[in-house]
């Protein structure tokens, strides 16, 4: 009997160690790969302040902020997905379901197309669009309680509605669409320390909030009636956690554009490895989210060098087949 929990603990320990090692490896690989060759030795010399040439600039001001931004984007999207999958009791839930993608997409596109000289407003516009849309969906779906199915349906309907505006924009201003393509696919190209500073507070808030919320997520997964029977203020907890998820996803898309699939597949892979206990699922998802985006972005930079793919495209190449695999698995069981 005893071994079962021991093997659980062991698997968590192994997964945690592997995760941290992968994170470190991803960081190093990402730092040394790219158009400018930087060796591990250069990296060490730069970090210790011995070397301060052009390579220093490339590493400290171009690669490092991009890697860190990517990692935080991955953490936020993965946390957001993990929270939503538990709140909505739906393993296929992702930040897109609460309108983050559609809202951010429309607002950002409107700025890029209608106010092309104000592109610095894209991140705040995307953030507001994402958060406001998720609030609207939440209240549209609310009927004495936020029922998961109603939330999902309201999300689909509103996404279609906002999608119509986006399509109209692309048709009416077809000459200006080119500039939006990279953002719409999700890209970390040209991210600087400003973006790190923009997303960092949300990552900290997310880690803190989801860390406390994990216990409540576990209880929510027992169903609303049981959760209420256990003294949980179900609607309040659901609302706060959904809004936390929306904030996390909004902050991620506002710096990186519409990066799909991280919020869906990362919590899912993590659940397959360590099980559904949110006290572990939440932190592990955060680590894996960071890892996956770092690796995907490194691939995006080098696979077609000197051309760069948006990281969202790489994620979709990997994410879409995995999504189909999940669908076929869940329909069989």
């Amino acid at each position: 009997m005893r071994e079962i929990t021991d093997s659980d603990a062991k698997r968590r320990l192994m997964t945690g160690a592997a995760g941290l090692m992968l994170l470190a490896a991803g960081f190093v690989v990402s730092v040394i790969t790219g158009t400018v060759d930087i060796s591990v030795g250069d990296m060490a010399r730069i970090f210790t302040g011995v070397q301060t040439d052009g390579m220093y600039h490339v590493l400290m001001n171009i690669r490092l902020p991009r890697i860190i931004t990517g990692a935080f984007v991955g953490v936020n999207l993965a946390l957001s997905g993990a929270i939503l999958q538990a709140v909505l009791k739906n393993p296929l839930a992702d930040p897109g379901i609460v309108g983050v993608t559609a809202g951010a997409g429309l607002f950002a596109m409107a700025v890029m197309i209608l106010l092309p000289s104000f592109t610095h407003l894209v991140p705040p516009a995307a953030f507001i669009g994402a958060f406001v849309t998720s609030l609207v969906i939440y209240f549209l779906a609310y009927d004495g309680g936020a029922h998961p199915l109603r939330l999902i349906l309201a999300g689909v309907a509103l996404a279609a509605f906002l999608g119509a505006f986006m399509s109209s924009l692309t048709v009416l201003y077809s000459d200006r669409v080119q500039g939006t393509v990279n953002w719409m696919a999700g890209s970390l190209s040209g991210k600087s320390w400003i973006h790190v500073k923009m997303i960092l507070p949300y990552t900290l808030l997310g880690l803190f909030g989801a860390g406390i919320g994990a216990r409540y997520l576990n209880i929510l997964m027992l169903g609303d009636d049981v959760a209420r029977g256990l003294g949980l203020s179900v609607e309040r907890v659901k609302f706060m956690l959904t809004m936390l998820a929306a904030l996390l996803a909004a902050s991620a898309v506002s710096v990186a554009g519409l990066l799909g699939f991280v919020g869906l597949i990362v919590p899912h892979i993590t659940r397959l490895i360590i099980g559904s206990d949110n006290r572990f699922l939440i932190p592990f998802s955060a680590v894996f989210g960071g890892i996956i985006v770092i690796f995907a972005d490194t691939a995006a930079r080098v696979v077609f060098a000197p051309y760069e793919l948006p990281v969202g495209v790489v994620m979709a190449f990997v994410g879409a087949p995995f999504f189909l695999y999940l669908l076929s698995r869940s329909s069989r069981s």
């Binding site: 049981v226 029977g229 003294g231 203020s233 206990d277």
Partner: peptide
Amino acid sequence: TDSAIARSVGILPQSPSAPGDIPVHCLVAY
């Protein structure tokens, strides 16, 4: 408050469901 009631009244709905991988002692601890 919700938790004050829950300290006196326990309620189980008809056929409750939970993720199948929860160990018994964790469920009881909830």
